[in-house]
Design a protein around this nucleic acid. Sequence first.
DNA 1: TTTTAAGTCTATCAACTTGGTAGGTTATTG
DNA 2: CAATAACCTACCAAGTTGATAGACTTAAAA
Lengths: 134, 134
Amino acid sequence: MLSKKSQYAFKALEYLTLHYKQGPVLISEISKKKKIPLKFLENILLELKKAGILDSKKGKGGGYFLSKDPAKVKVATIVRLVNGPIAMLPCVSLYFYERCKNCDEKKCGLHDMMIEVRDASLGILENRTLKDLV
Amino acid sequence: MLSKKSQYAFKALEYLTLHYKQGPVLISEISKKKKIPLKFLENILLELKKAGILDSKKGKGGGYFLSKDPAKVKVATIVRLVNGPIAMLPCVSLYFYERCKNCDEKKCGLHDMMIEVRDASLGILENRTLKDLV
DNA sequence: TTTTAAGTCTATCAACTTGGTAGGTTATTG
DNA sequence: CAATAACCTACCAAGTTGATAGACTTAAAA
């Protein structure tokens, strides 16, 4: 399941997508409109900024805004960034791969099945962008 | 991601599938062969028994065994039982549904997308059984 | 140049979950 | 009745999650 943090992240990104190219948006505004705890939202937006998804301006008239076209930001990217692996097993993850202990990947039935599940999920998440959220 | 508990559960079930209709199997045997901490495995098997997946016999000559044909036990059932929801959002889960707070399901872009992801995953997990694991 | 508005950083916290252990109890079989 | 093996209750350490507090920095406006 997506963590609350991830859900908040998506709500905030949805709001910023809606206001794309309309200048910086206040954290406090997003917090109010999307009912997200202010300080928690601060952390999330900062993380998204550090990852290059958002950009910000300090001081009066400042705020956050998308650093690129929302149609170019994949949902899969956000999930990986904020929530972690999309795959159900580490040994099947593309971006967070870890070898199985005591289990040969070549003859592990679960392994193959979970690759299928991963690909099925990615088929959707890699082909949807922030623009599709609004 | 599947928890370690879930991964252990699948390993144990794989072992029991392999020994289906060959009489009770000792917890300690599964523990050794599959390298699963004994006492942890006890909990897992007991849970599977309470859910009707396994059956057991006490005393000498006892042990655990599958209570039905492994070809009739869906992987999705086990995942839900041991790991929890398959969906990425509570508001999209079939077996663990919870309403979204501050978010109208009818006009939530994430909601619709996550339904797609759920169905893509279920398309696989609901159509694979323990038999497919070995 | 001071004030004020904003994001940024550090740190802390309670509650919960995860992975695992310990030890005693009950049921079965020989 | 003795041995065996599942069952039950309780507990614990470590990590994660969701959230808050407060001080610091930057930039625009008065």
